[in-house]
Design a protein around this nucleic acid. Structure first.
Lengths: 161, 161
DNA sequence: TGAAACACTGGGCAATGTGCCCACCCGATC
DNA sequence: GATCGGGTGGGCACATTGCCCAGTGTTTCA
């Protein structure tokens, strides 16, 4: 079993990678003041740990032509969960989907080309038998974009284990 | 001004990068069947475009020891927006924050070490003067993790402009 | 107390990829 | 008919990678 948690060096490495993703192993080792092999080993471990899932390109939907983001809370008909999940997964504008506690609900993140287009997306999302009701909140501002650095620093400070 | 939208080759490149983030420019050019310089130019353009924001490590909070995710809807006292934003930004467990239409609200994504720990996080989040009320939905399942590939394919199919 | 296990260091190697050139070609534009 | 933008295919020096090694300190455990 991989021990949860990261130590201080792991933390510094992840933060460094987050801030300057294109640097290589050698440069990272210079910045961190450790040997190259150490960085190599840490990165291997972090990835096989699952702490670092990958280095996918961070694509901005707005720059793709989808500047509108919204969150939709869905109420699902009993027993229709699997069908609804499959349906939502087939809609490209659904960027993520969670099932949550509360009203036996789902929460999904949507994007659209415009407010008018959002209507089309929502119609497509809710135009499915298993969905009883949907309430949508349109995002106006994003004061804190998805981030991980503060949490990494916290986790590193708390120490491994 | 950069024209919104991507063409079919951009799309294939992004999808390729998303699936195999560690491949280099040369390998990408081989896979796509184009010259290396083309890939180089496309990547430069996509990044200065803002379509690709970067290649940050994709860190899994669960593997850091924060397996619990929740979404909190916050009701804010009039005029306290800026203070609340600053307060939430100072909490590491707040991974993102949006202001939304609806009840003049905010929506934030939280993580915690456990359900019990979530209580601590929520107390910290809402223990601030400008926040009137909070309702929290704990994530049970994540049938569609944050994704971008289907949207990229859609955008590429729709063509540039 | 001794031995083994582990992580890190610092170094060396061949192979590969990178950044940066160039000349050339082609289609669209004016 | 010329120009321009984007793609091609090639070449170059240089840096980096992946992989090896032996040596060292620290911790763990018998």
């Amino acid at each position: 079993m991989s021990t949860d948690g990261i130590d201080e060096l792991d933390g510094r490495l992840i933060v460094l990678l987050a801030r300057e993703p294109r640097i290589g192993v050698l440069e990272a080792s210079r910045r961190l003041g450790v040997a190259r092999g150490t960085v190599q080993a840490r990165m291997d471990r972090l990835q096989s740990n699952g702490v670092i899932r990958g280095f996918g390109p961070d694509v901005d939907p707005a720059a793709l032509g989808y500047p509108v983001t919204a969150f939709a809370t869905l109420e699902i008909k009993q027993g229709q969960g699997a069908d609804v999940r499959a349906h939502l997964a087939s809609v490209p504008e659904v960027l993520e989907l969670h099932t949550t506690t509360g009203h036996g609900d789902m929460l999904c993140r949507l994007v659209a080309r415009s407010n008018a287009d959002l209507q089309r997306v929502i119609d497509r999302v809710v135009g499915f038998d298993g969905i009883v009701r949907a309430s949508t909140a349109i995002v106006m501002e994003n004061p804190v974009p998805l981030r991980i650095i503060p949490l990494v620093e916290q986790a590193a400070a708390d120490g491994p284990g």
